[in-house]
């Protein structure tokens, strides 16, 4: 679910991203930011078919954290439906979406 290399930390998100599933993910990412100094986070949406605003909070919260130390966040393999949701919440202004 997590993979770290030179590019940064890749987070493979679950099938459904909601308040229930994001809590654990957030804690693990924040631990890696604090303990390993991770500053680049790649959210991989390849398995994700559902997301609500809890996912928006997860992405924007991590953006705020790493932006503070000059890092960045991106979202990859995002399907069209979820892309619409991210754009509606203005996430694309801060997070590169592919």
């Amino acid at each position: 679910m997590y993979e770290q290399n030179q590019q940064g930390l890749t987070v493979y998100l679950p099938k459904e991203v909601d308040h229930h599933t994001v809590d654990k993910i957030r804690m693990e990412i924040d631990r890696q930011i604090i303990e390993n100094g991770v500053s680049a986070i790649i959210f991989n949406f390849k398995d994700t078919t559902f997301m609500d605003s809890s996912g928006i909070g997860l992405l924007m919260g991590r953006y705020k954290l790493v932006n503070y130390i000059g890092g960045q966040v991106c979202a990859v393999r995002v399907n069209e439906k979820l892309k619409k949701l991210l754009i509606l919440a203005n996430v694309h202004k801060y997070v590169n979406i592919e």
Partner: peptide, 14 residues
């Protein structure tokens, strides 16, 4: 502080 985005009602309305 809990990373709530404030988009809940906006999504319902959308």
């Amino acid at each position: 502080d809990q990373d709530r985005s404030g988009m809940g009602f906006a999504f319902m309305e959308a």
